[in-house]
Every structure is written in structure tokens, then in C-alpha cells.
Write a protein that binds this DNA or RNA. Structure first.
Lengths: 109, 109
DNA sequence: AAACTATTTGGCTATATTGCCAATTACATA
DNA sequence: TATGTAATTGGCAATATAGCCAAATAGTTT
């Protein structure tokens, strides 16, 4: 089956969502938000990067539709909008475990 | 909870796996391999890119531990090593559907 | 209104990714 | 051995991403 331009567009949309998850800091943010609402300054303290950096990561996740924000007073609170994204982690762990096994096998040879 | 260097390393490893999925062509490849083994030339015909480009995408997926290869004669056959990766798609579709709803809501305002 | 705080945005540099072409490698067959 | 085919690798230019600083924005408090 050949990849036509409609399929291509669909894969591009999906890739955009996955790309938003493809960064260690953003994975941490998603993990942290799974425990509950967090404001930008809380996340900045945990991550230890410039607040502008954290804000931009949050903006990437928001653009992708993974988180949503809620401004209350001076602070902006972020929430996980699509908790199913957490299922990623389970499979990613499986992949990593399989990789470790693979390395062991190669070393034994 | 502060992000220490051990956590950081863990998130980096996970991000590497997700990053390997974060490209439209590689998503297509994973989708296609979920139906069964494919050789590089088959994928090249479907994708319509230079074979070196396809080969490099496959190498990214292989490095991440998502696919495995099997050389038989002149051809190299690729297989999906971790089928759970397909679960990504369901959630990604959910995100995309939610995004469409969101756009409708905003337009209505 | 002035000063302060939380966050976002713009701009910049450094680094990573992509995709093509050309060259190389590996295997098959005449 | 010479020729051909499938795939990988190296190299390059174009583009995208990341993270910091500085500046702008939005809301709060004095």
C-alpha cells in the first residue's frame, strides 16, 4: 500500500503529538502533572531550569493538546488533559528492559 | 519532588525511545511493520523517498530497540520488536480528536 | 500610580535532525 | 571474475529544536 498525501498528513499530525512528548523535561512534566495540578514556578523549582525554558516546554505540550492551562491570579496552573498519555510509559519501559537484555546477550557472546 | 540526576537519566532514556517514534515516516514504518515483516525496498516503494533516507529511519528505530532486522540474501527484512508501541496510536488519536473539538469550540465563540 | 511577582515572548547561539547524493559494503549470479 | 542489486554509511546543506538572557505582559499589593 502506497503512502498517499492524505495518509502523510495524518502521520504528520500524529508525529506532532508524539514529538511533544519526545523530550526528557517534557516527560517529567507530564509525569508530575499526572499527580495533580502544578503551577509554572513549582515546575521550575523541580526542574531547575530558567522559567522561560519551562514555559516554552509547557507551550509545546499545550499546542499539542496534551496539557491545558488555567490562570488564577498571578499564577498559571497546568493540568494533564489526556491522561491516556501515561500509557506510553509502560511500553517505553518494556522497550528499555528489552534493550538491557539485548546488551547482556551481546556481551555474553 | 526535585528532579535529581538519576531521574534525569531515566527520563532521557525514555525520551530517546519516544523520539524514535516522533517522525511521520517512522510512524508509517511502525504501522506497516505491525502488519508483518517488510524489506527496505518495499518500504522505500511505499514511502517514495531515497533508499538511504528510509535506511536511516530504520536505523533510528533499531537503535531505539523498536524494530529488529534480519538479513536474508540481498534483502534486509525488518520486524516490529515491541508491538505494545502500537498502543501509542490509540491515545494519539484521542488527543487529535480532542484537539478538533477544541478548535470547534473556539470557532463557535 | 509605583513597585512587585509570575509568566510569556523575542532574539540569539549552539546543537540536532532531515534528506539527498555519492561512495562503500554485502551478497547473488552470469 | 565481472556485473548487478539491496542496503548502509559518509558528507553536506537546509531546517528545526533547545536553552539562556532581556524585554514585555498581566495581575497584585502598597
Amino acid at each position: 500500500m502506497k503512502l498517499d498525501s492524505r495518509d502523510k498528513q495524518n502521520y504528520e499530525e500524529r508525529a506532532k503529538v508524539i514529538k511533544a512528548m519526545a523530550h526528557p523535561t517534557r516527560l517529567f512534566i507530564v509525569d508530575e502533572l499526572s499527580k495533580g495540578e502544578r503551577c509554572v514556578c513549582e515546575l521550575r523549582d523541580m526542574i531547575g531550569a530558567d522559567i522561560s525554558t519551562v514555559s516554552k516546554h509547557l507551550s509545546v505540550l499545550k499546542q499539542a493538546g496534551i496539557v491545558e492551562d488555567d490562570k488564577r491570579g498571578l499564577q498559571v496552573w497546568y493540568n494533564l488533559k489526556v491522561p491516556c498519555i501515561l500509557k506510553f510509559f509502560g511500553c517505553v519501559e518494556d522497550v528499555l528492559r528489552a534493550n538491557v537484555q539485548q546488551v547482556r546477550k551481546v556481551v555474553r557472546k
